[in-house]
Computed example of a mutant assay.
Amino acid sequence: MTYHENCPFCHPHRDPHQHIIFENNTCYYLQHDKEQDVLEGSGVIVPKAHHKDAFHLTAEEWNHTYELLQKAKEYVDKRFSPDGYTLGWNVGEASNQTIPHCHLHIIPRYNDEPHAGKGIRHWLKQPDNKRETLK
């Protein structure tokens, strides 16, 4: 059995905690009750076709991802009123990609959260994360 036969993004209906909020011809915008419950309103945009990472998306899937990104922002803004967003793709184990099906994280950010102000640049600027060969 290949991974994509059990992939939670290839088969979003199998998980009762995962909800398809929007979809178009090639992509879903999903929210999960248990996996994305720390920052309310978090979700992911995933292609319906199984691609291991964003480097394998078609031009049509990129366009449809953009379409759902705009729709997701409007939805999250109205429902949760975040103060900002962190958007991101993880590619490979080194970046903490835990599901090998590409997905764009849509993470609403709030001024009153403990890690407010600590986005992607925060961990990029941490001296203790510098590789030994570059020190």
Score class of each variant (00 low, 15 high):
43 G>Q: 12
81 S>Q: 13
34 K>Y: 15
49 A>T: 14
88 G>F: 05
17 H>L: 08
90 N>P: 07
67 E>T: 12
93 E>W: 03
26 T>W: 00
72 A>C: 11
36 Q>E: 09
91 V>T: 09
34 K>A: 14
10 C>H: 01
12 P>V: 03
43 G>K: 09
68 L>G: 00
90 N>G: 06
25 N>V: 06
81 S>H: 14
69 L>D: 07
39 L>E: 12
24 N>K: 00
29 Y>K: 02
37 D>V: 11
16 P>S: 06
19 H>Q: 13
93 E>S: 13
96 N>L: 09
76 V>Q: 11
60 E>N: 11
23 E>M: 01
62 W>S: 09
77 D>E: 08
32 H>T: 02
17 H>P: 01
83 D>L: 00
67 E>S: 14
12 P>W: 04
63 N>F: 04
61 E>L: 01
28 Y>R: 02
26 T>H: 00
86 T>S: 11
63 N>A: 13
47 P>F: 00
26 T>D: 03
91 V>R: 09
44 V>Y: 07
7 C>S: 04
38 V>I: 14
11 H>L: 01
42 S>P: 04
31 Q>W: 05
72 A>N: 04
79 R>S: 14
14 R>H: 00
60 E>T: 15
60 E>F: 13
15 D>R: 00
67 E>N: 14
51 H>D: 10
54 A>G: 08
70 Q>A: 11
79 R>I: 12
36 Q>T: 01
58 T>Y: 02
12 P>Q: 02
38 V>D: 13
7 C>N: 01
81 S>M: 12
64 H>A: 08
60 E>H: 07
21 I>C: 10
46 V>P: 05
90 N>Y: 09
53 D>Y: 08
42 S>G: 05
88 G>N: 07
12 P>D: 00
55 F>H: 15
38 V>E: 13
13 H>N: 11
32 H>A: 04
95 S>V: 12
15 D>E: 03
19 H>M: 05
46 V>D: 00
48 K>M: 03
9 F>P: 03
77 D>S: 05
38 V>R: 10
